[in-house]
Structure formats: structure tokens, C-alpha cells
Design a protein around this nucleic acid. Structure first.
Lengths: 225, 225
DNA sequence: GAAATCCGTTCAGGCTGGTGTCAGGTTTCC
DNA sequence: GGAAACCTGACACCAGCCTGAACGGATTTC
């Protein structure tokens, strides 16, 4: 059996139907999983739900500027590789894009072979270590489906619960403060004053096991026992 | 489920002798079976006789336009993967090709390695489960006739219902947003603001089973349970 | 050409489940 | 013991979703 590059979970943010479909199909044909959204708010929702390994980001979207989205993403600590897809072949934009935290830049109409090459590059990076974020104790997490399994039994998690869990897993081994988690729940601005985080940690423990999250009194929480 | 590449039955539609021979030899060397025709009427005959798994289509043929051929093919419900081979490296043509139902696009003179890669991709798709897009739970779908069977009993679907179902199946395993489905219903531009998609999903579930479509709250739908 | 049928669309009302808040209880630390 | 920090069951609210019903246009039938 030939060596296979690992499949990626790709988030495609593109509002143009034709171009989007072309990209989508092409990426799927490479064996990757693609979720295709057309607006930034949908993208934010999807990102809350799924830990993508690659984002393809169009810069001209109906509901906002892609660059700001990217900046916010990076500011939130998200390190996922981002490839910008845009028609604007201007040096200034290109520099600004890379400066905002993009890993690469595709100018449309681009050669689909080029897209394939970059996908492969990212996929190779992800091959090897088989998703260290997918197990936690006796729980198996299916990160693409927002579901977890525990002793064979499927467990459904809501998007908020996943947001908390994901935050904890990204800092695996490290302590995550409550305010940190809170910020990942309520995108910048929408302050919430209560013990929401405590409630979600409680709900999480109920669903995936009490020892999945450890309380560090006075500091926050961390994943695992 | 391990994926195995299988030999493909390939139909090559190309009138240029030299280029045709190059492609033909190359594909044969990959272990696939190739029928080479030079005119569209011959192609139509061949397609009637053999269930090809892949078509390599040149756009400049003596007896007609390849694009029209492709459109007719798709209109007839034929879902076989089509890779367009042409010298015309123009964005408009490229988009029109993909829009007409092509799966991919090769600009000649192209890299033969690229051709090989795409062949492999298609072959991989065909390996393993035979036609994964034609069954869904206990339902059998005849994609060429736009009809479905459930436990032997035929189920009639309207064109809109089919559009929704097809969209879900094309993205099998992935989540399809409502706006995504909506755009596949109302060809680009004709915006509709309502819960049309919800209604069709509801009707679909009624006809082919409630578990045929799963709701992913806040994100969209996906095929299967 | 009238009647019947089918289909697409819209609307309204009902339902479900995610979310945030609170109160009272439990644990931890000094 | 007492205070601070944390846990968790309960509950009300509401966005999102489902679906029956009805309307109008298109097509078919007689």
C-alpha cells in the first residue's frame, strides 16, 4: 500500500460559488475533508466546532474583511495554517496578508496544481504524529464531527462545550485561566458576568468524565487528570 | 477502510494524433484500460456500450464542441468524472468547463505527472465501496434516473428534492450549510429568503427516512445518521 | 377551455435543545 | 471556624428548527 499523506480538515472560506466549487472539489479529490462556508460569521462558527488543520481564506467576503478575520484569529492564539486566496494581486496586499499571519498566498485565477502542491506540503507537515489531540484518558475524540466516544458509546457535545474542551486541549499540559476560556467563548466584547465557565466545565465532566478536566484552584483548569 | 487504487476504464476523446498517443500510452502505463476515439459521435457510441469511469475530453474536436457534449452528458444524468484537456488557457474557458460539469482541467502541453496524479485521485475514489454515492442507509439511489428505492419500493422525488439530496451526497461526510444548499437550488443570483431548505429537508426525510439527513445545529446538514 | 393535479414557495405556530443565570451546596485553604 | 473558590441541579428564555397548511403558477387531462 502506497504511503499516504494524512487527510486534512480544511475550512474553505469563499463566497464565489464557481471558484469555491472548483477549489472544494479539487481539495476533496486529494482526499481531504472540506467544510465550505461563505461568510465570516459562518467561518467563526465552524472554527468553534472543528479544529481545522488548514484554512483557505478569500479576502473579499460579503460580511467583512478577511484580513481582520485573520488578525483576530491569530490574536486569539490560533496557529492553524492559513492560505489566502484572492484576486488582488497587489504587493501591498500580499505583504499585509503575510504580515497578518497568513502562511501562503494564492492569486486567483491560480493553477489548481499549485493549490495541490501547497496542500500536500501542509499535509506532510501533519503526517507522522497521529493527532495528539484526539485522545484524552479513555475518551476518543472525533474532532471533525464534534463528537466524542467513551468506551464505545458516542457522546454529543454542544458547540460551547467543544469550545471549552478545545481550548483546554490546545494548551495541553498547561493551565488555562477562566478568563482565557471565557474569551474563546464570547468573541471579544460580549462580556458575560457569571460562572459560565464553571458551568460548562461541569457539563463537560459529566459527559466525558470527571477526570477529563482538573481544577487548579485560583488559576484555572487543565486537561487531563 | 483502506483505499485501494483500481484499474479504470478510460475514454479518451482527442483528435490530435500525437497528443492523443502520448496520453494514451501514459494512461495505459498506469494500468488502466483506454478506449481512444477522435470524434464526439464515436464517443457517444462508446459511452452507450461501456460504463467508463473516467473521460478525458479534448475541447477542440472536428464534429462539435466538447463543452456542449459535456453539458449534454451531465444533463442526461451521467456523473462520470470528466477531465478536460485543452490548449485554451483562458480563465473564462476554464470556469465554463468546470461549470459545465467537468471535474478537473488540464492545459496542454501539460505535465504528464499531473495527469498521473489526477488519474490516481479518481482511481482512489472508485476503489473500495462500489459507488458510495448511490446508497444511503436502506435507500438505493439511481442517480442517472433521478429515482430512489427504499426496501424495494420506488420513491418519487421532485427536482428540488433531488437537488438537495444530491448536494448532501456530494459532500458526504461533511457538513453542508443551508446557504450552500440554497445556492445549489437557485442558480447564482436569485436570492430567496425563507426556510425553503428546511422545508425540503423535511420532505426528504418524510420520503426517504428521517435518519437520511442529520441536522447540525447552527451549521447545516449532513447526509446519513 | 375548464378541471385536476403537481410543484414550489411562503407563512405561522409549535417544539427542541442550547444557553446563561442563580441559588444552595461542597471543597479547599489559612 | 470562616472565607474564598468552586460545583452543580434547576429553570426560564429564545434562536434555530420542524412541519402542516395554504396559495399561486405551471402542466396535464378530459
Amino acid at each position: 500500500m502506497p504511503k499516504r499523506e494524512s487527510a486534512l480538515r480544511v475550512l474553505l472560506i469563499e463566497d464565489d460559488a464557481i471558484l469555491g466549487e472548483a477549489i472544494h472539489d479539487h481539495v476533496v479529490m486529494q482526499g481531504h475533508g472540506v467544510d465550505w462556508v461563505k461568510r465570516l460569521d459562518e467561518a467563526a462558527l465552524a472554527l468553534d466546532a472543528v479544529p481545522y488543520e488548514l484554512i483557505l481564506l478569500d479576502l473579499n467576503l460579503p460580511d467583512g474583511l478577511g484580513l481582520n478575520f485573520l488578525k483576530t484569529l491569530r490574536r486569539g492564539g490560533n496557529q492553524v495554517p492559513v492560505i489566502i486566496v484572492t484576486a488582488q494581486d497587489q504587493v501591498a496586499m500580499r505583504i499585509e496578508g503575510l504580515d497578518s499571519g497568513a502562511d501562503d498566498y494564492l492569486v486567483k485565477p491560480f493553477d489548481l496544481a499549485e493549490l495541490r502542491a501547497r496542500l500536500s506540503a501542509v499535509a506532510r507537515r501533519y503526517a507522522g504524529a497521529p493527532n495528539p489531540e484526539t485522545t484524552l484518558g479513555d475518551i476518543t475524540l472525533d474532532l471533525t464531527r464534534k463528537s466524542a466516544e467513551r468506551a464505545g458509546k458516542p457522546v454529543d457535545l454542544t458547540s460551547r462545550e467543544w469550545a471549552v474542551l478545545e481550548r483546554l486541549l490546545r494548551h495541553r499540559g498547561g493551565i488555562v485561566s477562566k478568563s482565557d476560556i471565557e474569551e474563546s467563548l464570547y468573541a471579544f466584547g460580549a462580556e458575560v458576568e457569571s460562572n459560565t465557565v464553571e458551568v460548562y466545565v461541569s457539563r463537560l465532566r459529566k459527559k466525558i468524565g470527571a477526570d477529563a478536566v482538573t481544577t487548579v484552584r485560583g488559576l484555572g483548569y487543565k486537561a487531563g487528570a
